[in-house]
Design a protein around this nucleic acid. Structure first.
Lengths: 186, 186, 186, 186
DNA sequence: CATGAATGAGATTTCATTCAT
DNA sequence: GATGAATGAAATCTCATTCAT
C-alpha cells in the first residue's frame, strides 16, 4: 500500500469515528504511520483530501451501475438488483458510507467535486427517464426521484447498522418494495 | 427580542450558511450585536448552544403532532395533514430546517439531548403502532418506519428548497402518496 | 455581620482553598450571598481586597504583642508566651494563616500595604533591640532575627497542621526552645 | 541553546518578576524569541511547564547532597558544608530560588511532581535519622526538622537577597550556628 | 445602598501548513 | 520523495469591572 493510500484509509477511519474537525492532519498522519508533511505532498490541503476521498468512494459505488446495462432483465429487476447490491456495499463498508453521509451536504465539497459527481448521475438519469417514458414509474422530475432513492437508501442502511437485525435480507427486500410501490405506475 | 434570542437567531443563521466550525463564537456575537462574553452568559459553551438550539427547534416542530389527536380524521388523513404541514414548516423555515439536518447525526449532540428528543418520539410511536395493529400499514419495525418517514421528509424539503418548483403543492402531495403507497397495507 | 464582613470572610475561605486566581470575584460574592456589584462598592478592585484582608489579619495578630508590655516577666518568658499564643492563633485560624503565607511575598501587596505593616514591626523591633542591648540574645540585624522568627513560626504551624500530632503542646514548647537556643547569648 | 531551554529560561525569569498569572504564555514565547505554538510543543500546558521547571530546579539543588556521603567529615561539618553550599546556590540563582519559593506550596504542582520530589527527601531523611540515632541532634519527628531546615534556609536567602549585606559570609555561618544550636543535643 | 446583566480585553491552546534538512 | 520541528493566526472561554435600575 502506497503512503498516499495509507493516508486515505486513515483519514476515512478517523473522519468517521471522530468527525471532520476533531481529526487533525497530524492525527491522520500518525494513524497512517507517515510524517506530518507527507499528507501535504499528496493533497494540497485538508479540504482537498476530503474532496478526493469523496470522489474516490463515489467511483467505488459506480461499479454497481453495470446491472442497468443487462438487457435480459426487466427494469424493476434491474433496480431491485442494484438496490440489494448497493445496500450490501453500504453495510460492508460502514465507514465509507458514513463518510458519504457526513459530507454529502457539507461546505467542504467544492463546486468542482459536485460537478464531477453529477457527471456520474447522467447515466442513471437516462435509465430513469427511459423507465418513465416506458410508463413503468411515475412521471416526476429526475432529481426528485433521485432524492427519494437516496433518502430510502440512507434510512435502510442506518436502520440495519444500528439494529443488527437477524431478518436483514428480508428487510432489504421489503425496503425495495416500499420504494417500488411508491414510485411504480399503476 | 432578548439578547439570548438574538444570539440564537444569529447562531442558526450562521451555522447554516457557514457550517459549525466555520462559525466562531465571535462571529455569532457580532452578528447578534452583543458582547463576546454575552454568549457564554446564556450558554455554557458553543456545544451547549447547539444542543439548546436543537431542542428548541424540535419543540417548535412538535406542535404539528396535534393532528393525530383529531379523531374525526382517518389515519391516512391525519398522516397526510401532518406531512403537508411539516413540509410547509420546513419550507418556511429553511435555516431551522438546515440546522436540524446538519446536527441530526453530529457528535455535538449530547446523550441528554438525544434522550430528550426520543421522549418526543414516543407519542408518534404509539400512533404508528396503532395503525399497524389496525392493519392500515405494513407490519415493520417502528424505528425503520420512522427512519423512512424522516429521511423522505428531508429529501422532499431539500429538493423543493433547491429547485424552487412552481408545482410545489402538487409535489408535496405526490411525495405523500409515494410514501403512503410504499407503506400502506393492501 | 455586614455585607462587607461577609465578603471578607468568603474571600479568605476561597483564596485559601482555591488560590488567588482560581477565585473570581463572582465566586466570592456568590459564596458571600451578595450581588456581584457589591464587592466593588467596598473594595476598589480585587487587588485592593487582598491588601485590605492582609492588613486586617495582621492587625488581628498584633493583639498578642501586649505580653511584651508586661514588665513582670523576663524577656525569655515574654517571648515564650508570645510564641505559644501566636502558634495557637495560627492553628485556630488555618485559613487566615494560609492567607498570610500565600500573600506575604506576592506581587499583589502594594507598597502602601508593606509600609503599613512595617509600622507594626517597629514595636517588636524596639523590644528586640532592648534584648540585644541587655545581652540576652545574639547581636544580629533586627530584620534577620525577624526573618528567622517568622520562618520558624511558619514551619511549626505547617507541621502541626499537616500531621495532627497528639503531642502538640510539647512540640510547640520544643519549637520555642529550638528558637531560643539558636538566638540566645551564652 | 535549544528552543526548549530558551522557553524554560524565559519562563523562570518572567514567573519570578511578574508572578504566575501575570505571565501569559504569549509573554514567555515572546521573551524566548520563539513562536507561540512552540511552548506547547514541549509542554502540554502552562501548568505542565511549571511542574517541569520545578523538578528541573530541584534536581539542580540535589547535587549538593553529595557532601553527606563524605565519611571523613563529622555530621555537623557535613551539615555545615551543605548549608553553606546551598545558600550560595540560592544567592547565585535568585530567579530559580524565587521560583521554588513561589511554587513550593502552590496548587499548580501536581501530586506526581510532589511524589517525585519526596523521593529526593528520602536520602536526606536517612542522614537525619542516623544523626538522631547517634545522639547528635534532638529526637524530633523528621518532617518537623526538615520543615525547620527548609524554612530557615529560605529566610536567610531571602534576607541576604533583599539586604545586600557586606558581612554576607559571616551571616551565612551565623545562620548555620543558630540552626545547629537549636537542634543539637543537650 | 445593592444588584446582576452585560461587556470586551486577554488568556490558553490547537492545528493546518511550511520549509530546511 | 519524506520528514517533523516550528509557526502564528484564530478559536473558545474567563472574569474584573461597570452602570442602569
Amino acid at each position: 500500500m502506497t503512503k498516499k493510500e495509507k493516508i486515505m484509509e486513515a483519514a476515512i477511519r478517523l473522519f468517521c469515528s471522530l468527525g471532520f474537525q476533531n481529526t487533525s492532519t497530524t492525527k491522520i498522519t500518525k494513524e497512517a504511520g507517515v510524517g506530518t508533511g507527507t499528507l501535504f505532498l499528496y493533497f494540497k490541503s485538508k479540504d482537498q483530501l476530503v474532496n478526493d476521498l469523496y470522489l474516490e468512494i463515489k467511483k467505488e459505488m459506480q461499479v454497481y451501475h453495470h446491472v442497468f446495462s443487462n438487457s435480459n432483465l426487466a427494469f424493476k429487476d434491474q433496480l431491485n438488483t442494484f438496490w440489494v447490491e448497493v445496500v450490501h456495499w453500504g453495510l460492508a463498508n460502514p465507514d465509507k458510507f458514513k463518510f458519504l453521509m457526513q459530507f454529502k451536504n457539507s461546505p467542504y465539497l467544492t463546486r468542482i467535486t459536485m460537478d464531477e459527481v453529477s457527471e456520474d448521475h447522467k447515466f442513471v438519469a437516462e435509465v430513469m427517464q427511459k423507465a418513465i417514458a416506458d410508463g413503468l414509474i411515475i412521471n416526476q422530475p429526475f432529481e426528485f426521484l433521485m432524492a427519494l432513492f437516496t433518502s430510502q437508501f440512507l434510512s435502510i442502511i442506518q436502520y440495519l447498522t444500528l439494529q443488527n437485525n437477524d431478518q436483514q435480507e428480508a428487510l432489504i427486500q421489503t425496503s425495495f418494495e416500499i420504494l417500488w410501490n411508491g414510485i411504480k405506475k399503476n
